[in-house]
């Protein structure tokens, strides 16, 4: 269940791409974050890697988007939780 922080870069100021941003905001797995100039921070929280990839492709193909960069991909949650448990349960 991937969580990723992404930076969307538009060809010009964010304010000029209201339609694309509306499309992004319409994707239920996406939270919008800060924007500045031509950049917009988003977080994608999806159920499967496949869905994550679909969202990535969708965003990348939106009009005006010239770059999509990964700021952070969260740990694979299930595996991570199990690992933490295994350490914690040692005592």
């Amino acid at each position: 269940m991937p969580i990723s922080g992404l930076v969307v870069t538009f060809g010009s100021s964010v304010a000029e791409h209201a339609d694309s941003i509306e499309s992004i905001a319409a994707i239920p797995e996406i939270d919008l974050g800060e924007s500045a100039g031509s950049k917009l921070a988003i977080v994608v929280d999806s159920e499967t890697k496949r869905r994550d990839q679909e969202i990535w492709n969708t965003v990348q193909q939106l009009p005006g988007v010239i770059d999509l960069a990964v700021a952070m991909v969260a740990f694979d949650e299930t595996a991570e939780t199990n690992k933490l448990d295994s350490i914690r349960n040692e005592t």
Partner: peptide, 9 residues
């Protein structure tokens, strides 16, 4: 994730 992306923006 939001902080990381935000910091790049």
């Amino acid at each position: 994730a939001m902080a990381a992306a935000g910091s790049m923006v």
